[in-house]
Design a protein around this nucleic acid. Sequence first.
DNA 1: CTGTTAGCGCGTTCAC
DNA 2: GTGAACGCGCTAACAG
Lengths: 343, 343
Amino acid sequence: MHQTTIIDIAKALCISKSTVSRALTGHPNVNAKTRDRILDMAAQVDYQRNQLAISLLTNRTSTVGIMVPEFISFFFPKVIIGAQEELARSGYNVVICHSNESYETEVANAKALLASRIDGLIVSHTKETRNFDHFRSFQRKGIPVVFFNRVCEDMDVSKVTVDDYHGAFQAVEHLIQTGRRRIAHLSGPDTLMNSRSRLAGYHDALTKHGLPIAPELIISYDLNLDKANIYVNHLLNLPNPPDALFTINDPTALEALSVAKRRGLCVPDELAIVGFSDDPVSALIEPGLTTVSQPVHELGQQAAQVLLRQLLTEDNTFVAERVVLPTKLIIRGSTVQTSTNSY
Amino acid sequence: MHQTTIIDIAKALCISKSTVSRALTGHPNVNAKTRDRILDMAAQVDYQRNQLAISLLTNRTSTVGIMVPEFISFFFPKVIIGAQEELARSGYNVVICHSNESYETEVANAKALLASRIDGLIVSHTKETRNFDHFRSFQRKGIPVVFFNRVCEDMDVSKVTVDDYHGAFQAVEHLIQTGRRRIAHLSGPDTLMNSRSRLAGYHDALTKHGLPIAPELIISYDLNLDKANIYVNHLLNLPNPPDALFTINDPTALEALSVAKRRGLCVPDELAIVGFSDDPVSALIEPGLTTVSQPVHELGQQAAQVLLRQLLTEDNTFVAERVVLPTKLIIRGSTVQTSTNSY
DNA sequence: CTGTTAGCGCGTTCAC
DNA sequence: GTGAACGCGCTAACAG
């Protein structure tokens, strides 16, 4: 099937394709009457410009790639929407990829994005990623890269995150201030910098308040939810079990809450639980989940803005930016007994 | 910034670009030695083929567009993943668009997808869409379109849905069989065919069991969750309020559950509630939400498979397919008193 | 086995 | 104002 081109329009009107091109792009030097005839004909044949040809010519696609490890949780879709709104405002299209937490898929996606000549990349890497050469390719070719959420420390590119360290610190301090003394931490894989930052915050909060670091209370896991309940049960089976649990994210905390319920444990009295990210579910369940909320939409906006600034910088004078957004502790029933049960 | 091309490689090796092209595409007629030199050089300069040029040449992008009204809920992302897996297997890339439930955005996205010369489109339209000309453009240009979930009745294209009618029928029948007699329905906008089908199922289930249709118990709304609680409260304030509520989707049902709790109503005894889609949250809250589950992942797979079949049909012999997947009623505490409270 | 040529659709010179 | 010619990067047909 043949899509109508400017040549088709030119032939139909017995004029040159240059004139058609000029009329269609709004060039001033076109006779008003011929312009109208061209525009009419274009509408009549439902002409759509071939972006491929234009991109090949201009060496710009006006397309930005966004790659995330998954988009089943609320988090990444919301970031994507924030970024997309911002990019659309500046005339950029977006292609979304998800690596499905697989390093190989991530590399394959990166190659495909490179081949499709995107103008920039916004990315949060997989939990498996240790080698970042596939992202360095973009840098070498002069295509701006912005990391968000899960960032690569070793690359000199812009990075947008929340203050994971402080969020975790606050969460643990809240547990200490409400009387907990044996606080466990179900952490993420150490490939993720945000996981390491949250662990550091946990660590320092305990230290600040003179509590010992108990290695048996710190478990790092691969975020595979099926395993979360194994680890929670393991912690609760310890001879000296924890009285509180701080988890890497909300899904893990919800899993822990469910395990606690099944074991007949009273939350928050016997076990307090704090998550991270303020998943919408956390406000709906009972007891509500205390959690560290992050400005998710803004995360996407900021990532897009940083990228746009770099895209607008003609020469190579752009220096990588580092944006850190604030977190906020949301206190709910999983750490503090609520006065009334609304049900 | 210049991206390396086959010409750069050709020059560096003092050979013609055709030979480079042949070596890179795996053409057999290349001397093994020169092939190795070319491949080495390509790896060394981190050559990435320019997909734009190839697409322009072949008039195929190997890219499929997927447009959805939103992707904050679990539903659309899961459909997209199902479709993407299937399409990737056949070597197709995917660009994801969301129209944000805005007709204008949908039209703009359609134009952009047309300009970027996608090979096919998988789409669920917005709740505002009454005019489908922007989708007919694809059809006219020979680009296959597959609707899913929210389908356009008037277009002769493939459609993949679940059995909304039967799912709703079963849900309402379940309410009747558990003793409810005044069953309300919070329905979606009548622009959505799945909403109309569910309403019809509700209607026929009542009729089959000799129950009257009470117009005051049927409310159609625009899916804007902020308004859901207004309508639920309105229903519960009626002189003769409903003893059960069947909603167009789970978020609406969850909102209703929350309103019932706030009013001190006992669910399921004083008000039974049934949703649609089996949102993951529905299993987590208390009481659990009875709901009509749909095979979400399979919905995406099927949509992709139908599209792929059409993409493979060379001539215009392809006839539009109509796929209807089964639904399944999941019974939980919001309609049937559960024996134990696990907490 | 390899080089030359043409052309995909478009915008952009440069003449006229 | 308008048309002819060129080239973006690549593959495919045709010669050699």
